[in-house]
Design a protein around this nucleic acid. Structure first.
Lengths: 209, 209
DNA sequence: AATACAAGTAAACGGTCGTTTACCTACGGA
DNA sequence: TCCGTAGGTAAACGACCGTTTACTTGTATT
């Protein structure tokens, strides 16, 4: 049954997210599932293979998600036309959805924690962590905001500074939510921050195309 | 010589910050210093003792630092009078100094990374991490801003929202600086953010006591 | 009914883990 | 000069590591 393979992956992810990759033993994963560690090697060729499968799945999920939302999926250079008609509403909508995703989704929240614990181990992990969760989103928002300023949706400002101002509360509150069970208060705080941002930087008039 | 004891502590801290506590072996620490692991037990009673010594030292350093700066050291409830005359300048000054501290100071930057890697292991580590680096500073700034609004230094606003808006860029940029060697650009970005914050929320007029 | 195979067990492999032990200096104070 | 001790070595301890092996099932296909 391929069901066991799935259980191994999720169990390992949960453990990796709490203890870190090295601190989790193969026996630990197996014991959590009530099987022996030998059985585990029928599904994955080694411990690293489990980790790699997790990362690979995250890539798949992420690609799928960015397709579902009407926001640009690629860098500005590759498809600048996709940045032309991004609305404030879709930004806000996508951001709140991403917050729930990174804090509450069983896979994504644990993946984020796991990556947090592996970020200093080598350059590959550092890059992955920063692209997904730290500086990656900042560059992304910078491109969007630059276009929004050009289109007159936002007031004149430094797009990079706007990007930091917009994304920083997201990043902080995601990490705040790790501590407490009640993630709702952080989400409401984020909503306030976004509304304040919009109110502060949105151009006063609407411009038709 | 107590010099070896100090070298063990710093070497262990550097390794803990990169690999995580569990992933670092006692042999690894000893090898880095060119001694055998047996010698290590002449200075610390076990591996956990090294970790605890690191945490204890951080407490000492932190207490010493907050004394050097003219900013409140304790919670608002315990000494509210210390919050009465906090100026914008001292806030800005302290914040920039804290940024350099957490990103460049050999002990503090590695301690922060180590704590980042241990935060999910148990409640004690989680609390320590959040008190030092995540939600702790937010509560702290909230108290300061509430008093500043009361004193007319800042415009009327929700102090908690202000605290998030102020601290979030700090937290994000500290983490950004982990990836790149050039920490200067992030520091300048932080300076811009703070100046923008001041300009946006400072009360237009000065009020004398 | 015979066969092939997927999925599990138990045990063993060589290695490393954190820690302890026994032994070896070098040296400062009585 | 003798002794205690601080700081080091090398080796061993039992436990656990990731991985492999040999063997046992249940089940599906021929």
């Amino acid at each position: 049954m391929t069901d066991t393979k799935e259980k191994i992956l999720m169990t390992a992810l949960h453990l990796f997210a709490r203890e870190g990759y090295e601190a989790v033993s193969v026996s630990m994963i197996a014991a959590e599932l009530g099987i022996t560690k030998g059985a585990l090697y029928k599904h994955y060729k080694n411990k690293r293979d489990i980790f790699d499968s997790i990362v690979e799945r995250m890539y798949r999920i992420d690609a799928q998600r960015s397709q579902e939302y009407e926001v640009p999926q690629e860098k500005y250079e590759t498809r600048p036309e996709s940045y032309e008609s991004v609305s404030m509403d879709s930004i806000q909508n996508y951001t709140m959805s991403q917050f729930i995703f990174w804090t509450e989704d069983d896979f994504a929240s644990h993946f984020r924690k796991m990556l947090t614990l592996e970020q200093y181990r080598n350059a590959e992990m550092a890059e992955l962590y920063h692209n997904c969760i730290v500086s990656g989103p900042v560059w992304y928002m910078e491109d969007i905001f630059r276009e929004m300023i050009k289109n007159g949706v936002l007031k004149e400002a430094d797009p990079k500074q706007l990007a930091v101002e917009f994304y920083a509360p997201f990043y902080l509150l995601v990490n705040c939510s790790d501590l407490s069970k009640d993630k709702g208060q952080w989400m409401e705080l984020l909503r306030s921050q976004i509304e304040c941002f919009m109110q502060c930087h949105a151009a006063g008039h609407l411009r038709k195309d």
